[in-house]
């Protein structure tokens, strides 16, 4: 474990907590893409299948349980409890265009052709594009609540911090995982224009408004 990975995990944890607070406090999931949340739940389910078979540490297990529970819980809140506030009309990104290519790619490009490893690879590829429905929705509505933009900033930062973790591990541990690194770079790059808007607008107290 290193400071970059810990900061990344805490940023990821913060993002999920911010989202849960937003939905619970406002009792609404307006502006949030349910499709992205479904993809995140799939990411965690396919990645953490080794929850019971491969014990790394108490921290690792606790975080996996929290990520699994919170992502499934968020989908429940959005599609059942606060279903009436879910904005179907703007959450229209075709997620089959994300699921199929990532599934095929994980069958072709992986470290080991085994069920667990292919599911882990699929999860890594899917996570790199899972935010697209949410970014698409923000561009369609043209704006986002400030709490939603804080959520996106924390979520985008987590994988950016992981890139620093991979650089650290390469130089100090001689470890690197090219699949996670490439997917992590793609994932972080997808946030770049949002990061620009967040830093130039939201941090100055303005609302996140995309140029129409």
């Amino acid at each position: 474990m290193n400071i970059f990975r810990l900061a990344g995990d805490l940023s990821h944890l913060a993002a999920i907590i911010i989202l849960l607070i937003k939905i619970w406090k406002t009792r609404s999931c307006a502006g949030i893409s349910g499709r992205s949340q479904v993809l995140f739940a799939i990411v965690f389910i396919t990645r953490y299948l080794d929850l019971f078979t491969n014990f790394i540490s108490a921290y690792n297990t606790a975080m996996k349980v929290f990520f699994l529970g919170s992502s499934i819980g968020t989908v429940y809140l959005m599609y059942l409890k606060f279903k009436a506030t879910y904005d179907h009309n703007h959450d229209t990104f075709r997620i089959e265009f994300l699921l199929l290519p990532t599934a095929l790619l994980s069958l072709v490009l992986n470290h080991e052709f085994s069920v667990m490893e292919i599911l882990w690879t699929f999860s890594i590829y899917l996570e790199s594009v899972a935010i697209l429905p949410q970014l698409f929705m923000v561009s369609k509505t043209g704006e986002a609540e400030s709490i939603t933009s804080h959520y996106l900033f924390a979520l985008g930062s987590y994988r950016g911090l992981y890139i620093l973790n991979w650089i650290y591990r390469y130089y100090f541990e001689g470890f690197y995982d090219i699949i996670a690194i490439v997917a992590g770079c793609v994932q972080t790059i997808l946030y770049c224009d949002f990061f620009y808007l967040y830093i130039t607008k939201v941090l100055k107290g303005k609302k996140l408004q995309l140029p129409a």
Binding site: R5, N54, K64, H111, M116, D177
Partner: peptide, 10 residues
Amino acid sequence: PSATVAHDEL
């Protein structure tokens, strides 16, 4: 030999 790749990152 298929070394099962143990992923220690979240």
